[in-house]
Design a protein around this nucleic acid. Structure first.
Lengths: 199, 199, 199, 199
DNA sequence: AATGAATGAGCTTTCATTCAT
DNA sequence: AATGAATGAAAGCTCATTCAT
């Protein structure tokens, strides 16, 4: 009988590869990230990666699906929360800050793919973002109609919010790791709410 | 005897190379952008590029200096304008929108380098951005002391503004080319000012 | 305790592997034939093949021995038949046609190895063929001395006959599967006998 | 001004690469033939081959076109010769012997592709051979009608002749380099003519 | 006996850079 | 000054083989 590998074990190894890949891609960019290095740092053989992923690009896509899904879920759950909008916006800011802290490499890969790599790879990401923008815009529109927030063109407003959130998540790359996230979240939440508070 | 090339002619060719390089890198990313293709599209020989730039990376760095300088100048001139802050913020938004429209390729390269490529390449960009953040923070701090804007922690506030501006410039990549810039600028300026208006 | 496998069972599995291997090698050539695929199509595990064969090359060599032995036996039995030479030549043609039909994959592998792969692999095949040529040459020489066939240099004549026979077996690969074997055998037998009939 | 390479020089280098490639493929088979080795033995850099050929497969195809063209031309010119058929058949034998001697590596590659490699590569070869068979068959049919040769089914007869010719060319691979070509040609021509001589 | 997860040697191909002209 | 032919390092991927179970 062959070496038995439980699905659980298999999944753990898959994740391990993804983590290393995320770190490497975050550091060097997708094209420079080296499959050999990834294998080495994951403590497995060069060919083993191809037992878990079809190709280097497949690794990237999986990574992007993962982080994309997390971002989507965060946005969706925050804007659907049964809270005043002021709290919802703060929740959003906090959610992005958390994602950025806990999955910073994934986040970098996400942006790297969105702007940095081949457009073919970035396209699905852009599509997903567009969906998020639209969902948020719908929610904002309804909230405005109910007088819960100020009345602004919903799509640009939604794009504005998501842009500010993404920027938040990328701050450490620009300002260094000394960024005080809790203060930054506070400022972001404050400024967003002042912007959207009904007159 | 060597062909005599006036400094002017030389400069013009340099710019031509940079323009083509920006287009190629914006489309394919730095690593996939092909020096041969750039040379071809610039109408010069493969080796000639190396008479104008030391290496492929040098081309990128020059590109980044160029767009970085433009962004710096825009930020600096806007925040130094002798106008009420509401107008200055609107000016900033307009300036980024203009840059994004007129130098979209450069802007993409800028972000691609900031997040997408090797961290070594992104580092100088980050440094520059940090400087901009600090300058804007100082200006905001003084304005707050003078009661012209609300009193918020200046650094996070400055980071917030610049993040929102960068996001604005990249919107077409995410939402498609149908983005209505003038409306987006309006919303951005409105939301920023509502956020920063003194109580 | 190890599972008990009767020699008979073992031999059957060996043959099964060889059959699949012949099909795969005939279709894709030795180098592209995939051991994994062979194992899969033989309904056994990847590693199991190595309990029956020492290596991929060993599979090939066994295959070649098998078909080589069949060809040898056919040639030997036909030329030793107690029949007039005209009938013997016809028998030979028929024998090759039968082999080609019933063991077409094996035949392709045989030729592929003879000309298509590494010379080291082809060498034993060539040796065997050389033996066949010599045996046939001897028989032809004696027949000529007895006046049963025309007097021609025996070695070249033998090489000629075997060459024509091999070509016959490979015809479907070149002319397509529509080849009418019985007609082709007839023509071959006729032409051979006209060539060798005593004056 | 760049290093000027005359088309003539370029063509000579192309041929040099092809010669080396033919030798390597003849010795090791297409799949084992190593581009690095070919480059090395041709005295050029690894990448240089790709300035002359699009891919390894392109090298093979060019090789096959070359030898295929030579074989076609030989067959066509021999059967069109204004000579008695006895002489034409001898001419054919001589032509194949010459090709086999002067371009033995090419010939081996030809057969290797026909039987040994991927069917996709062999297909064009088979097509070409089929054309030759048909042309020869037509000529034989007309000759038979004019009573110049015996009346036999033309297609099988043509296939027989070409098969015998190919076998002739490959004899050294089987019988060793000591093959006496002139004697072999003589026997082949004799046997063929006896087979085809009108009654 | 049997298995299939794991391995890494080895392959083709790309492309930034050099340099003879 | 300008060129493009030539180069070779470097990378992703395949697959025969091993071996723990």
């Amino acid at each position: 009988m062959p070496k038995v590998v439980t699905p659980d074990e298999r999944e753990r190894k898959r994740r391990a590869i993804l983590d290393v890949a995320a770190a490497e891609i975050a550091r060097h960019g997708y094209d420079r990230a080296n499959i050999n290095t990834i294998a080495e740092r994951a403590g497995i053989g060069r060919g083993t990666i191809y037992l878990y992923f079809a190709s280097k690009e497949d690794v990237l896509e999986t990574l992007l699906d993962t982080i994309g899904g997390m971002i989507d879920a965060a946005v969706r759950s925050c804007i659907a929360a049964d809270l005043p909008w002021q709290a919802r916006l703060r929740l959003l800011a906090q959610a992005f800050a958390d994602l950025a802290r806990e999955h910073h490499d994934f986040f970098r890969v996400h942006v790297s793919a969105l702007y940095g790599v081949n457009r073919d790879v970035g396209a699905p990401m852009a599509l997903r973002l567009r969906t998020s923008v639209r969902e948020l815009a719908t929610a904002l529109g309804e909230a405005a109609r109910r007088g819960e927030i100020a009345d602004l063109p919903p799509e640009p407003a939604a794009a504005y919010i998501l842009g500010a959130l993404e920027s938040l998540a990328l701050l450490p790359d620009v300002l260094g790791d000394g960024v005080d996230f809790s203060q930054q979240v506070d400022v972001l939440a404050t400024l967003l709410w002042r912007g959207f508070a009904p007159p």
